[in-house]
Nucleic acid binder design. Structure first.
Lengths: 226, 226
DNA sequence: AGATTGTTAATAGTAATACTATTATAAATA
DNA sequence: TATTTATAATAGTATTACTATTAACAATCT
């Protein structure tokens, strides 16, 4: 579904739209691979330019700095996720089913989102787990927010919150629960890999335990607040 | 209570124990102020050295790099929190009361922890909210973990999980719930300040809503898994 | 006292990173 | 063909993180 759709992103994310040239597309594709491999701190425009190959300065024509590039990728991810969630839950009668679908989508995006020719969903998911916090935990948060650079992430949380409210209309904390749910899943995925004593879930079971935990958390809370 | 206790931290955090000299203590005190004001990215050893004042090289005698200094501060924070939680819940009969105390402590550390002569709890709390994720979201996570640099944070989550298990012995996800609870509170605090559409809680009410939300979340989950 | 040793701080760097100013090249248009 | 425009390449600079070396200053021992 996703592969045919051109996702229009906030124009403050780039200086020159990378989707409009082959060189720009190569920047996106290679940056996903490099950030996935090296981590965001070790990732530099120098390394990206030799990988493409092009020059450092050329990349600066497209992106103000590497932080904007990271924001571009996270914006794309959450936009794609929002589209996918809307598509999957379209015409679903039961709010419960929509919520379950949402949780499964966040935990296993590759199961639902088709392979994209340029942006590997699998690697993007890894980047989201490891680096997405860094896209908003900065001193420029308020300026960036005014430029609406977090809209796709907010949108995703908001449609998830809307599903919660459909299931439990009187619940007062739908937005907090939605953002907690998303962040918790990402954190638990990270902990499963690196700090297993902070979780009871095992990554080798395909995160089945994580799914149980989160559904448990959400429905017990919503059922008591119907 | 805390102010008289010397917290012994992992010796891999420093090259020379900053607690053992006046200069070292000044580094800790000033670094809390500067990271709080500037954010971790803008914070440099150069700025710290002029603030003390001393030289950059001298600081490098104490800390391998600025990342280790951040880890030192977060280690101190969670060690102090663990001591405080143990102290507050000592001799408490009801697990429910202990859990409520824990939640209130995480949300309002300054209400419980006395002012420390050197490390401002209020500013440290701000640093924990804004920067603590960066202390473990790095490529060196596995090596750092082997050096036991995340033990204090794990310890805190584990004693919280122990309280959950005391309340609901059959619950299978006590550790996941504990880490989710801590991370969620920190994130919600951040969202209240900067991205209010991701939360339903208001910061001007003294985070009363946040307390309701988290208690709601935890007890609804635990009650269903008793 | 004078020599030795060890601890601490200061000097003066280097390598890498993030970013920019300027020039060259190619394509589109008049 | 001449002119404009868009794009890329070259060649930098400023800053940052970090290190190697030297100097100062005690404490200890002969």
């Amino acid at each position: 579904m996703i592969q045919n759709i051109q996702i229009q992103l906030n124009e403050h994310l780039y200086l020159k739209d990378p989707m409009q040239s082959e060189l720009g597309k190569a920047m996106l594709q290679k940056s996903v691979e490099l950030i996935y491999e090296l981590g965001f701190e070790e990732f530099t425009f120098k390394k990206l330019s030799t990988a493409i190959p092009t020059t450092e300065a050329t990349i600066y024509r497209y992106f103000e700095n590497k932080h904007r590039l990271l924001q571009y990728l996270t914006n794309w991810y959450w936009s794609a996720m929002t589209i996918e969630y809307t598509y999957l839950t379209n015409n679903m009668q039961q709010a419960e089913q929509a919520i379950n679908t949402g949780i499964e989508l966040i935990i296993h995006p590759t199961k639902f989102m088709p392979q994209h020719p340029m942006l590997s969903v699998e690697k993007l998911f890894g980047i989201i787990i490891n680096e997405s916090n860094k896209s908003y935990l900065t001193t420029s948060i308020d300026e960036d927010n005014q430029l609406k650079l977090f809209k796709p992430y907010k949108d995703f949380c908001n449609i998830l919150a809307a599903s919660f409210l459909k299931y439990a209309p009187k619940f007062s904390f739908a937005h907090s629960l939605a953002s907690t749910c998303v962040e918790s899943i990402l954190h638990q995925c990270y902990f499963m890999q690196h700090l297993p004593s902070l979780t009871d879930c095992k990554s080798n079971t395909g995160a089945k335990g994580l799914q149980t935990f989160i559904k448990n958390l959400i429905f017990n809370t919503l059922d008591k607040n119907k």
